[in-house]
């Protein structure tokens, strides 16, 4: 349906005007709406066009230089290939800053890092490897070659050393790298490991599952499921986007809380959804999840409740 151009232009003007925080001509706007029912329809169409474009727009322009601690990374499609180039280079200053934010030194020489929901942090290891910690996550470092993810999610960019492999304990599960960029998410009993570069061995002394680039292992209920993953999408949370793959509404609520710092809750563990969403839109307006996920969002206290429709 196309709208008569003059009406559409007027609707566009009103949409621009009402967005200004000091807009005051609400009676003038009401009068314009009352003049013709087509006006409200045109205004709705304009607002819908703008709102639908928002998540796409934020996906375009939440590039690395913004999500950053990654400077001058202007090669989005192949950005992983270029990662090594800047490691240890221009980043030195920001890495130092990040390293000083160690939360505490635990007994035994462990360094603990913890992020608040919605916060992310870049951690530099002594050997040039990096760990990017997502919101609501806790990581313990034991030197440069061993770490323990206690909760949440992190993207590891590890300098490979066959003689001294990097060992990560994700909850109770051990992962060993073989020269690697990989993302690990731990949420209650669910473990999700996705590899962008190199390889990771999951549970080397038990199941010994080898994950190559573009592969992902999800453990739920004690069983592993191996799936394909787009290498460029690994660690996409750093660029303001998260994906769900058959996640329950309760899991989605927990993930969104961790990623956005806004409070989401759901008691629904039966309804499962898959998809990918841009977080900017959700941060700006949690109700935006309704059309994105096809769920119902209601305000409750200072949080938001997600329910199936």
């Amino acid at each position: 349906m196309t709208t008569h151009p003059p009406i559409r232009d007027a609707a566009l003007d009103w949409a621009m005007a009402t967005r200004a925080p000091d807009f005051a001509d609400w009676d003038g706007f009401t009068a314009w709406l009352e003049a013709d029912p087509a006006h409200a329809q045109a205004y709705d169409a304009v607002q819908a066009a703008l709102e639908e474009a928002d998540p796409v727009l934020s996906a375009i322009s939440a590039p690395e230089h913004e999500a950053a601690p990654e400077p001058a990374n202007d090669n989005p499609p192949g950005w992983l290939a270029g990662r090594r180039a800047w490691l240890g280079g221009a980043l030195a200053a920001s890495l130092v800053a990040a390293v000083t934010s160690v939360l505490w030194y635990a007994p035994g020489g462990e360094q603990m890092f913890r992020t608040a929901p919605g916060e992310t942090r870049l951690i530099a290891l002594d050997d040039g490897s990096t760990v990017e910690l997502a919101g609501g996550s806790t990581l313990a470092l034991e030197g440069a070659r061993a770490a323990r993810l206690e909760a949440g999610q992190a993207l590891f960019t590890i300098r490979h050393d066959a003689a001294d492999p990097f060992v990560l304990d994700a909850g109770a599960t051990r992962l060993v790298d073989a020269g690697t960029v990989f993302d690990v998410r731990l949420s209650g009993p669910t473990l999700d490991v996705a590899v962008a570069e190199g390889a990771v061995i999951v549970d080397p002394e038990g199941k010994a599952i080898r994950l190559d680039p573009g592969e992902r292992a999800v453990r739920e209920g004690g069983r592993y499921r191996i799936a394909a993953v787009d290498g460029a999408a690994v660690g996409e949370w750093r660029r303001g986007r998260i994906s769900f793959d058959g996640a329950s509404l309760a899991e989605i609520a927990a993930e969104l809380t961790r990623a956005t710092g806004r409070r989401f809750a759901s008691t629904d563990t039966a309804t499962r959804l898959s998809g990918s969403i841009a977080l900017d839109a959700v941060r700006a307006d949690p109700a935006a999840l309704e059309p994105l996920l096809g769920v119902r969002i209601t305000r409750s206290g200072d949080g938001w409740t997600i329910a199936a429709q």
């Binding site: 499921r225 191996i226 799936a227 499962r272 959804l273 898959s274 096809g294």
Partner: peptide, 19 residues
């Protein structure tokens, strides 16, 4: 666009339904 309901995900090796 961005997301849609998915009636559960099969076990085993399968292409990512999100892809």
């Amino acid at each position: 666009a961005w997301a849609e309901a998915q009636p559960g995900v099969a076990e085993g090796i399968a292409p990512a339904p999100g892809a």
